[in-house]
Design a protein around this nucleic acid. Structure first.
Lengths: 221, 221
DNA sequence: TGCAACATAATTGGCGCCAATAATTTCGCC
DNA sequence: GGCGAAATTATTGGCGCCAATTATGTTGCA
């Protein structure tokens, strides 16, 4: 039998590669402002030049990265004004999920969410920053998946990705991290009490509090 | 002096072409489900094959159109469930602009909006469907431009574009068209009274009423 | 040494070619 | 004539080549 490799069509490969690159950006493998050299990406992700360019184009349309003609693509840098607009939009959208979540979520899902909250607590103590980030993402992604509006969900995650281009560091202090942790449990309480209004309020403060607006922590270099 | 034609770079040309195609779709020059043959687009918009494909890719990422491997691109068809989700999301976002608009809009802008509302009234009587649509768009675009959140605005217009892929005809009857017309003036009244809450409520009914689809989509309040 | 002009290297970008796939027509058989 | 198979045409899609542009390095001169 010939072990022939499956050759998917471009749109599939592009989407996959775009997601891989997007994840790498989430994990801070590439930092805001950093140039994404096509040759490097070819090797790192074992893709052709063509696929790399398609994927970069897609990410540019999604505004995860920015295209500068004849210079290439770089991770988007989000200025403070835009960042605040993104946060405001996130608050609007993520609050709006509360009703649907409370209406739809079941006991099994609540148990699973409790587990994710606990995982986050553990990660706060021992995990790396990226672990914390991924678990936090999983918690919210799972919760929002019950809102009953896929369009809304998409927009939320697109916004969250865009917000990463900011210089503002989320959880800039350990206290904020612990506060986020506590708020997860408060959300669980609201969820169990089927209190959509309270959940919405918690979501709003969760977003604002995770990202301290004010002087941005400056990185050397 | 040699009258040499300016040759812009691809990203610019692609964006322009993508917008032209998007507008053609808005104006129903291409209908939902219709295939967009690359050769036709080359001729119609006097662009190269390469530019056409880039533009189509961009529109596919924005979900204005859909890409079917080895078949091509076609205007996206939105199923009823997704359409309702889009409407629900639009209500959430467009309501959220009310506060900012009321806070920022000035007398000159209000006067201009009154003018647009009047233009719409005229178009209701004598204009074509696309004229009505374009004037309506101008009215809302101008109003929302005062909300103070560019990110929010972008999302609203992306959603409105996406919603056009539905089979549902907006203003399916002349009464609904007239109702939309009246609501514009009610919005103006709320605006002049600086009543953000009332404006938000009007925006919500405006969206629901323009598109007659059974019971209104659930909308958190 | 500082710096500007030039030469070289690195990288991106436009696009055309033709292979792969789908749609259409023709043909042949019952 | 009806229907399916095969040939033809139409259309899309992958990708590599090299020109255009930018970055880097080098030289020469004050």
């Amino acid at each position: 039998m010939t072990s022939e490799r499956k050759r998917k069509n471009t749109s599939t490969r592009r989407a996959m590669l775009a997601n891989e690159i997007a994840q790498a950006i989430r994990l801070r493998a590439f930092r805001p402002g950093e140039w994404l050299r096509q040759i490097d990406l070819e090797e790192r992700f074992e893709a052709t030049r063509f696929d790399v360019r398609s994927a970069l184009d897609e990410l540019a349309v999604r505004k995860t990265i920015e295209h500068v003609p004849n210079r290439g693509y770089r991770v988007a840098e989000v200025d403070l004004k835009t960042y605040e607009e993104i946060l405001a939009a996130r608050i609007i959208l993520e609050k709006a999920t509360a009703d649907g979540i409370v209406a739809r979520i079941d006991a099994a899902a609540i148990a699973r969410l409790d587990g994710l909250a606990a995982q986050f607590s553990a990660a706060v103590l021992t995990g790396s920053r990226t672990e914390q980030s991924e678990i936090n993402r999983a918690f919210h992604q799972f919760m929002y998946s019950f809102c009953g509006n896929a369009v809304l969900e998409e927009m939320i995650w697109a916004l969250r990705d865009r917000g990463r281009g900011s210089q503002i560091t989320v959880w800039s202090s350990h206290e904020l991290l612990q506060k986020s942790d506590r708020e997860h449990y408060e959300m669980m309480a609201a969820l169990k009490a089927r209190d959509a209004g309270r959940l919405a309020a918690l979501i709003a403060t969760h977003i604002v509090k995770g990202a301290p607006v004010g002087p941005a922590p400056v990185e050397p270099g």
